[in-house]
Amino acid sequence: MLKPLNTAAQLGYRTAFGLFELPMATAQKLIGIKRIAWMFLLPNLLIFGLFTFLPIILNFFYATSGGDAILLAHRPYVGTENFASLLSCTDYLDPNTCRRDVFWRAVYNTGWFVVLQVGFMVAFSLLTALILNRDIPWRGFFRSVFFYPVLLSPVVVALIWKWILQRYGLFNAGLEDVGLSSVDWLTDANWAFFWIIFVSIWAHMGFYTLILLAGLQAIPADVYEAAEMDGASRWRVFSKITMPLLMPTMIVVLVLSLIRAVQAFDEIFVLTGGGPGSATTLILQYIYETGFASRPQLFGLAAAASILMAVVLLVLTLLQLRVTRGQAEN
């Protein structure tokens, strides 16, 4: 049954790549073996240039021009006005006094979201990794259990929780069952914020658990055996051996999750739509709505906001490089 399939696949593979045999061999004769490497790099570099490097430069042109035209030629130069408009506030601690109050709400929401989501997620991932690192039966199965939500699409994740948290949903039924009163979870500002953090931890912690688990398993067993011989307590083993040796992995996990949290969008957008009001609107949703979802499309403002976000991400990445280098020197 599989044999003809296999033969067909091989035939397809040979035909597809064989087609390029003649042009590539000719190119090799013309430009020589030394420079053929560039032929191999060409498609990838072309895509990179078009969709990564060029946009980085264009972003600055958008950020310094106004109007709602997408073509740069039709956009008047406005200098730093977009940045000035985003950053103009009488009191930076109170978003209501800012010209772009939704932007500042989004900035504060993102700040809180990043701190709480990353903090709790890394803590739970570490706890789960430590438990999965114990000598328990069905370890592979339990590892998959915690990893499974990572594979689900953000839209699916949001819909699953929306169904559970709705007014007449499972969660409220459970609460009424034990004598508590039900709550409109996603239309109460504070609870909605709690649930976007909860749901994004639920969806992503498996990934970080997996990385931390790999880090834990890389710690050589004889270190633990030596500590056991010395009669060290469990807490001492954890704080003096496990944590220091896990630190490099921990930094990777922290930085990866920070960078991801700053750009959180998908699940939250489907779960709460940024509401109620703008209580769960994060920075990327502000960019999406300013540039694409609302009319007129303020591309300049969106580009300026994304450059500000890029600065934050750059600082986080440099911080990571610095910390990892510092560790390598120790």
Partner: peptide
């Protein structure tokens, strides 16, 4: 070339949404 490619690991596409949209358009 290698460093250039690795450097883009640090530039998530979310910060270039507007200009990528222009190119695609």
């Amino acid at each position: 070339v290698f460093l250039l490619i690795i450097a883009t690991l640090m530039i998530p596409p979310t910060i270039n949404l507007v200009p990528i949209y222009l190119v695609v358009n």
